[in-house]
Every structure is written in structure tokens, then in C-alpha cells.
């Protein structure tokens, strides 16, 4: 079955970012496909590559990156929700004259149309609330 996952919670303020990662891993293990993982609301913080947890804590950004490498996942961060919270790629950093970008390159900033398309194209949509 073809799934899309919606992540609304930020690392460290909600368990939902970890639950979503575990669920996605389980999906893929069972042979399902993932059309897209969409990070919205506070979930956009999952893509911040400057996030530096202590060594004995999970680094969600790296975990998503690893999962993407293994399964060629489409990880999309809502551009409006991301930029307002300080999750920027180089082009947005340039556009807003910020000194640096910080999005992990496993993630793409894009518009809400990507979430609309995900609900349209997927058999199942599972939301992980904040």
C-alpha cells in the first residue's frame, strides 16, 4: 500500500516526531511504499541539521536522512511553516538575507501543494499530531 505521513510535532517538545519515524520504518519493513513524508507546523524542526542532541540521545534529523538513503524517501518540509521557524535552504537564506542555511539536504522545502498531492495520491494518510 502507498502511504503518506504527516508530522506536526517537533523533536523534544512532542513524541510525535519519533513515533512517526518508527512508524515509517515499520511500514517500509513490511514492504509498503511511502509516497511522501510531509513536515508541517512544529514538525518542520525535524529538518534542522544544526540540531545537536547529546550523544546518548536520538538525532531525528540524521535518522530521517539515513532512512531516505535506504528507501529513497521524499521528505518535504512546508516552506511557509519552515521559513517562519528558521528552517531555511540556501536559496531561502539568500532571498531573506540570512547568514546561513540550516536544512539537512535529505529534506526539500516546498509548498502545501505537496501535501495536497500526497493526500490525493496515497492509499493511506497517517497524521502524527503535535
Amino acid at each position: 500500500m502507498n502511504y503518506s505521513i504527516v508530522v506536526l510535532g517537533a523533536p523534544f517538545s512532542s513524541p510525535s516526531a519519533i513515533t512517526a519515524l518508527n512508524f515509517t520504518q515499520a511500514l517500509l519493513t513490511q514492504g509498503h511504499t511511502v509516497f511522501r513524508v510531509f513536515f508541517y507546523h512544529e514538525g518542520v524542526h525535524c529538518a534542522n541539521q544544526l540540531s545537536t542532541p547529546q550523544q546518548d540521545e536520538i538525532n531525528l534529523t540524521n535518522q530521517w536522512q539515513t532512512l531516505k538513503k535506504q528507501h529513497n524517501l521524499d521528505l518535504v518540509v512546508c516552506i511557509a511553516a519552515g521559513v517562519k521557524r528558521g528552517v531555511l535552504d540556501q536559496s531561502e537564506a539568500n532571498r531573506h538575507e540570512k547568514p546561513c542555511s540550516n536544512i539537512n539536504d535529505a529534506f526539500d522545502l516546498s509548498g502545501l501543494g505537496q501535501l495536497v498531492e500526497a493526500t490525493e495520491q496515497s492509499d493511506r494518510v497517517v497524521t502524527f499530531g503535535p
Partner: peptide, 16 residues
């Protein structure tokens, strides 16, 4: 988690 996935597949949709 495996059962969680199976539940989402055996139901037509999920509401959170």
C-alpha cells in the same frame, strides 16, 4: 509498530 502498520492498512483511513 508492526501491528500499528497493519491496523492502518486494515482500516480505510485513520483520524488522529
Amino acid at each position: 509498530y508492526e501491528g500499528f502498520v497493519e491496523l492502518t492498512a486494515s482500516h480505510d483511513k485513520s483520524a488522529s
